[in-house]
Simulated scan of single mutants.
Amino acid sequence: MLLTHSGEYVQLLTPDGERVAAPGFDPWVADVGDDELRSLYEDMVISRRIDTEATALQRQGEIGLWPPLLGQEAAQVGSVHALRRADFVFGSYRENAVAYCRGVDLTTMISVWRGNANTGWNPYDIGVATPAIIIGAQSLHAVGYAMGCRFDESDDISIAYFGDGATSQGDVNEAMVFAASYAAPVIFFCQNNHYAISEPVGLQAVKPIADRAPGFGIPSVRVDGNDVLAVLAATRIAADRARSGQGPTFIEAVTYRMGAHTTSDDPTRYRTDEELAAWREKDPIDRLRTYLTGSGALDEAGEAEVQAHSDRIAKQLRDGCRGLADPQPLEFFDAVYAEPNAHLERQRNQYAAYLASFDGGES
């Protein structure tokens, strides 16, 4: 695995939709033909449609909060397509494109943001842990899982997704210590979207984030995170290293969060219109569409079919969200522990008595 020079990154598809050579990476996507490229494109379009629909639902008061991934579709879709089904994903709260590609139920995806569930999906159904709100904590979980895979002599691996801000957290650094020491088959996937909430990445990383990992004994690579082919190639390389017993890899996918940090954030307070416009020119979906239409792999009928599919998915999300029944107060105590216990039952009874003290309260 090559550690790229500071300031540079691997790129296979330019913002203008031109395919360029990248020795050492091209062989890892040599099998990706028109059908696979259209699949990647469709997943990115649908992921963005899910994102814009969920943002609209929040603005309309249907959900309480949403963390947009607008602009980061290639980083998420390209990386998850490099994994096997048995590999386990540990993400933050923004990896909804990853969850979609792994088959999460759309209503389940939205339920926690509507306040109808304490958590999301069953992790074992799709091989994806539920969203982690504590910044960077999932990196430790991913390393622990990977160590278990190694001790079990399995060739399954794990991947931890986090943002540039998380790299300043102790959890991520401690996770890399353990991963290097135990040669854990894990991929550290950093989506450098340039802002940790409102703080630009340059305030916490004076050099590329990928340069940090070698200090822990972990090889790293910096890729164009808006280039789905480059992301796919780099993640395939990292996965192969992990499966073959060579330990962890750190990937820095340089991308840009074109939306807000969450729907409660106002990005106009900390970034300029000019900066946003410059990154829109590097849009991950536009560049792949340009490449596909230029090569004849995507025509108007094919594009219309993709857009129609994305609209159907958005309708499923909206209908599922609005069809959720309001949770009952005492459901808060359900599924807190695997087995009932006296401590929890006492709290439940106390809260039931409190509710019963009001007219119409649940008992």
Rank of each mutant, 00 (worst) to 15 (best):
Q246A: 15
R236W: 14
T255V: 03
G259L: 13
A238F: 01
D266G: 15
V254T: 10
D266M: 10
H261Q: 07
R236P: 01
V254D: 11
T255G: 04
T255M: 07
A238T: 02
A253H: 10
S244Y: 05
D266H: 08
I251Y: 12
D265T: 00
D266T: 12
D265A: 07
T235W: 14
T235E: 10
R243T: 07
T263A: 13
V254C: 13
P248G: 01
D266S: 10
T255P: 10
T255K: 02
A242K: 11
A253N: 04
S244L: 05
A242R: 13
I237H: 07
I237K: 10
A242G: 10
H261N: 10
A239Q: 12
A239R: 06
T235S: 12
Q246K: 15
R257Y: 14
T249Q: 06
T255I: 07
A242Y: 01
A253V: 08
G259K: 07
D266F: 13
P267W: 12
T249P: 13
D265F: 00
D240N: 14
Q246M: 13
I237A: 09
P267K: 05
M258K: 12
I251C: 13
I251T: 07
E252K: 01
P267I: 01
G259I: 03
P248T: 00
G245I: 02
Q246H: 15
A253M: 05
F250Y: 01
S264N: 12
G259N: 11
Y256V: 00
R243Q: 09
A238K: 02
A242V: 11
F250D: 08
P267H: 06
S264T: 09
T249G: 11
D240P: 05
T262I: 01
R236E: 12
A253R: 04
S264D: 09
D265R: 04
A242M: 07
T235M: 09
T255D: 02
G245E: 13
P248D: 06
T235V: 02
Y256S: 00
D266P: 14
P267M: 04
R241D: 14
G259M: 12
E252D: 03
Q246N: 15
D240L: 00
A239H: 04
D240A: 09
T262N: 09
P248H: 02
R241I: 06
T262D: 03
A239V: 00
T263R: 02
G247H: 11
A260W: 15
T235C: 08
R257T: 08
G247Y: 12
D265M: 12
I251D: 12
V254I: 06
R241Y: 15
A242W: 11
R257D: 04
A253D: 00
R257A: 08
R243F: 06
I237Q: 14
R257L: 07
P267C: 00
G259R: 15
F250K: 00
A239M: 01
D266N: 10
G245D: 11
R241S: 11
T249R: 01
G259C: 07
S264V: 07
P267T: 03
H261A: 07
R243V: 06
D265P: 03
G247S: 08
V254H: 06
P267E: 01
I251N: 10
S244E: 11
A242E: 11
H261F: 08
M258Y: 10
T255Y: 11
Y256T: 00
Y256P: 01
